[in-house]
Design a protein around this nucleic acid. Structure first.
Lengths: 312, 312
DNA sequence: TTTTATAATAGCTTTTATCGATAGTTTCTA
DNA sequence: TAGAAACTATCGATAAAAGCTATTATAAAA
């Protein structure tokens, strides 16, 4: 048994196809076929059920894949140990970012990060919290930026910043004349929300429910992006809440519709999260330092009340 | 990096000598030299400091060895997964047994076990509890039989039996005429004990201390084996306590010196212990079943009071 | 039936792991 | 301090393995 064979097993298990897996491994398909056969001979058990299309794992196969993932991840960690010892910061680093953080945070730190750590090749993907957790656990992501706390067993969190919610209230809305809004002003029924799957939506629902026994179904309107929420709001469909960093990018006439909360303002906690095995910790530290350094200049709120991002 | 290279690293780290490590790996010394160099080149770091005699690990080397142990253990587990799936019970199995259990328990179950599971090659070693814990953690032992509870973080315990302590009291001793002794009769100062390192000794010390504030230093006499304890006792050096299974083997005139405790008799808990990763669980189960089955016929006490084997 | 997609097989090439022999080092010892 | 002893590194040869291209086999889809 070799580590190479185990990575081949993982690739096939992932793509359910020898040919595609071979491409990902940068070898030809016959190479995979023969190596898998050798491993199956050595263990004297079938890992894949080739009679099914697409190919499936056998029962033992599934267990072997789990174990193989361990071994391959742990073996990759040896280079990380060496890098860490040398203080080398570089290599490929795959990071996931939730949709409501991506467009505002990424432009703020990316340039600075690349400049400071030119040897790190960041691969950035926009993903929901749910997908992020799956991919951190299976090793497809090295880290992610998401709203916390998540209370996910194998995942560690390190807070980057607290981002207050800001009310966006169009003209003619019942709260328009109130300069500073309060949590108790919120009515879930006239609130525009992102569609299901966004933790920013869940946070707002938690916020509303925290003060009144509001039901959490039958929303008036939902949208996939915050930009759309603002447009819908402008058309008089209701108010909405925006993450603070988003409000910095609005043009001046829209900024007039922003209404901050009285302190303590509700806020989300945004963290860099990573697997408890702490692979590539030196890059995670580097990201943390760059981002929290940059945010320190952008968000100056003292007193916030943290809202859970989890659907309840 | 290959699993083979990692096992070579482990062998050298263990023997601190390329030549001996090569023998243990069943390859020649040049093979080790070249493979280690390849790995060191790939990682671009020195794992061993060859300037020291005997060879030493570098700082990164130590971390790499720890990680390598993980990987090698986990990769061996793949075959275990397959075996478990197939219900195959066989292969090499290394078990440690504490000295005060070894001579009585081993002859009772060994024959029956080998007969029932002929494909398992047991490698049995007599070790103190302390050594057992080290070796279970570093993968040199698959399981062990020891007095419990141990409260050791990475080790699981499964009770085999409760073995009462029996007083061995020579003629002319102040307790000789008392048929059933009590815990409160014990005086640590006229008790013969095993030398330091035996958990059976620690158990007795705990037992004495539980009832009186007896000091635990300045024992009169200590010995390395229970046989010697009995002889010393016969010569009038004091009384001693024996594990119940030992008393079954005494010749009849010595048996007259045995004094049981009034119930609940103090007893030690004897368990099969193993690493929490539960490698080779099917063999551990087999051992548990054979041993506890055999003991059930030999020990019939109902009511016991368990004494901790840990030095306090 | 023909086409398409995909895995297995065959034959050959390249790479690599290992070996025996030997050279270079360090440490021990007389 | 010379020489032996104990070790590790290096060299060249070899056998095993991992990989490639080309082809075949097989099953599903058109």
């Amino acid at each position: 048994m070799t580590i190479t064979q185990l990575t081949y097993v993982l690739a096939i298990a992932e793509h359910k196809n020898f040919t595609k897996a071979a491409e990902k491994c940068f070898v030809t398909q016959p190479t995979l076929s023969t190596q898998i056969q050798k491993l199956e001979d050595e263990l004297d058990v079938l890992i894949f059920d080739r009679s099914k299309k697409p190919i499936e794992l056998t029962e033992v196969g599934r267990k072997i894949v789990n174990q193989a993932r361990n071994i391959v991840n742990e073996s990759e960690r040896i280079q990380d140990i060496v890098d860490q010892q040398k203080g080398f910061i570089g290599g490929e680093f795959r990071i996931g970012i939730i949709p409501t953080v991506m467009p505002t945070l990424l432009p703020m730190f990316l340039k600075a990060f690349i400049k400071k750590y030119p040897k790190v090749k960041l691969k950035i993907e926009e993903l929901t919290t749910e997908d992020i957790i799956i991919r951190i656990n299976d090793g497809h992501l090295d880290a992610a930026i998401a709203a916390t706390p998540l209370e996910s067993e194998n995942i560690k969190e390190r807070v980057l910043y607290y981002e207050p919610f800001v009310g966006y209230i169009p003209e003619h809305h019942r709260l328009y004349d109130k300069k500073l809004i309060e949590i108790s002003d919120l009515e879930i029924d006239d609130m525009l929300l992102l569609e299901d799957g966004h933790c920013f939506r869940d946070g707002i629902i938690n916020l509303c429910k925290a003060f009144k026994n509001q039901t959490d179904d039958n929303f008036q309107l939902e949208s996939g992006s915050i930009e759309t929420l603002i447009k819908l709001s402008n058309e008089g469909m209701g108010m909405t809440l925006l993450p603070y960093l988003h409000t910095l990018e609005l043009n001046d006439n829209l900024k007039g519709n922003l209404h901050h909360f009285v302190e303590p303002s509700p806020a989300r906690e945004v963290s860099i999260i990573y697997h408890k095995s702490e692979l590539k910790m030196q890059i995670i530290n580097a990201l943390h330092d760059v981002i929290s350094g940059i945010i320190r200049g952008a968000i100056a709120f003292q007193n916030v009340k943290i809202i859970s991002p989890l659907a309840k």
